[in-house]
């Protein structure tokens, strides 16, 4: 039982990361019905820019914790810029011409380019990311928890909560929701929906970049860290439903926990299988996702 609980706790922090990235997929899907398939790369570049920033700050005699906090706005800004670039280069034209698949290829291509750039700037090796919190595990009733794992869960939830509060209370957030509801009607309200879509891409990459610097101290960072995370988070977005914020959190947790359990009780070699099997099951039983509303096309 002790071991089981330990595995669940470890699964939760991994799952929250999946959840945050999947949340990013939702943000752009809501406003534009398109996704950034380079979302994993947005996480990776965010983490590496964070690494360079934090090392620079530490080199200038800042403590690790202070440096980590000072680094976050830099990473958020970088993520926002990167997302805007992806929307501008890869998506805008496809939306304008109502292309069905152009944005898919374009965002994948941009993801590969970002990965290549990162390999050339930071190398191909996995790098150690300074941890702002003690790396020694806390012992809570016999279950070991790394402080950074707690920080991941709190950071991820805060980020999603912040977006939710923005959407519900500010007029600009309401404009984002209106654009998600009905793009044409939103235009009639005087909302520049093109700009709203750019904004949702910026916000989406921002959440990914933040997820990157949250997970980096626990794992390692490097040019190849994003691909698998991006793919799994995509599975989570499908499992949880592309329209439900709660869905991706629950979907992420399910996947994270199932993975760690499989890794221990079956074999680490099969760690990736259950999540994908789950994805296949959900797709065949409830294609709109566990929490999604089914899309009924009205004629």
């Amino acid at each position: 039982m002790q071991i089981f609980l330990q595995l669940v706790v470890s699964g939760i922090s991994v799952g929250m990361i999946y959840g945050v990235i999947a949340f990013g997929y939702q943000l752009t899907f809501a406003t534009s019905k398109t996704l950034n398939f380079g979302q994993g790369e947005a996480l990776m570049t965010g983490a590496l820019v964070g690494l360079t920033t934090i090392n620079f700050l530490i080199g200038n005699h800042f403590g690790v914790s202070v440096a980590f906090i000072l680094m976050i706005p830099v990473v958020l800004l970088f993520g926002a810029c990167q997302g805007s670039v992806v929307e501008w280069l890869g998506v805008r034209q496809a939306i304008k011409t109502k292309s069905e698949a152009g944005w898919i290829m374009a965002t994948i291509a941009l993801g590969i380019i970002f990965k290549n750039l990162a390999e050339n700037i930071w190398g191909r090796d996995a790098l150690k990311f300074p941890s702002p919190l003690p790396e020694a595990s806390l012992d809570i009733g016999g279950i070991r928890i790394q402080p950074m794992e707690v920080a991941i869960v709190i950071g991820a939830l805060l980020m999603m909560l912040a977006v939710e509060v923005f959407n519900r209370t500010s007029i600009y957030g309401k404009a984002v929701v209106a654009t998600s509801n009905d793009r044409d009607a939103a235009q009639l309200m005087g909302i520049n929906t093109g700009r709203v879509i750019t904004f949702s891409y910026a916000l989406s990459s921002m959440t990914a970049a933040l997820a990157g610097v949250l997970v980096a101290p626990v794992t390692l960072t490097g040019a190849s860290m994003g691909a698998v995370l991006g793919l799994k988070a995509f599975a989570v977005a499908i499992i949880g439903g592309l329209s439900s914020g709660l869905g991706v959190v629950v979907g992420g947790l399910i996947l994270g926990i199932v993975e760690t359990l499989t890794g221990f009780y079956v074999s680490t070699g099969y760690k990736d299988v259950p999540g994908l099997v789950l994805l296949l099951i959900v797709l065949s039983v409830k294609p709109s996702g566990l929490f999604g509303k089914s899309a009924i096309k009205k004629v």
Binding site: I171, K174, A175, A178, D184, A185, A186, M189, I191
Partner: peptide
Amino acid sequence: RRVFPTLPVRDNLELGAYPRLT
């Protein structure tokens, strides 16, 4: 009609005034 279905009535009205609020 094209009202915004997932937003409350009050927010729909507020969005009508979007250019005034921004």
